[in-house]
Design a protein around this nucleic acid. Structure first.
Lengths: 114, 114
DNA sequence: AAATATACATAAGAATATTATGTATTTCCA
DNA sequence: TGGAAATACATAATATTCTTATGTATATTT
């Protein structure tokens, strides 16, 4: 489990990318999927997730589709066209950021040993 | 220049690692050095930097040494032993985090092409 | 002399996450 | 069959952290 500090600022990127890959998901599912994929090293909290989903939807990045499982409601989220765009932008920005940080923190694997 | 969102949560790691590599630095110097090293892609703001330096010092990670250049004061920071420890812990945690995120976001370069 | 750079500092506000709590249903299992 | 755990949503209070704005003051460049 990483320090929460470290994960800050990556939540939107994670959500948008997961939805891009998985098609449609509901909130609780996102939490479980991220936990699974990261061996529980990243555990999203619902208190952070739901407000972020709502704000992404409000900003036109996500569409909602309600589904009733018996009486329990489930809200499936899918990317809008804008959301897909944002997802790709955010992921590639993060990829660049990683490279910058690797250089800044001297994490580059040495290429020349001889 | 990366979106500020992306840089969130990395400030302490950056500061501690720079001090580990450079020995001793003052605040303004840290801002310039990070800008230089990252081609201005990461620009720390003084409003974020100084409070963070103060809190790191308060927590025993940094030592301060004041130097007067004429009348102007300059505060040099160095890592304490605890600070060196924290620096190494934070950097390696970040390195692991990068790997987790690369997997989560499907950024792994393909190893097998044939 | 004025503009820019150096060098510190802090306060108000915004953004985002944590923690705690709440509702309600469904599934597991003892 | 009754209680715990899991599912699935939500939000409010608080904490943390960053941005933006502002302030002070000296030194250097033009």
């Amino acid at each position: 489990m990483y320090s929460s500090e470290l994960i800050k600022g990556t939540l939107k990127t994670i959500i948008l990318n997961l939805l891009k890959e998985q098609g449609r998901m509901y909130g609780y599912e996102i939490v479980q999927k991220v936990k699974d994929l990261t061996d529980a090293k990243i555990q999203l909290t619902e208190g952070a997730l739901y407000p972020t989903l709502h704000s992404l939807e409000k900003n036109g990045e996500l569409d909602i589709e309600k589904q009733y499982m018996g009486k329990r409601v489930r809200k499936y989220y899918t990317l809008t066209e804008q959301g897909l765009n944002t997802a790709e932008k955010k992921v590639s920005e993060f990829a660049e950021f990683i490279e910058t940080m690797k250089f800044l923190l001297d994490l580059e694997p040495k290429m020349n040993n001889g």
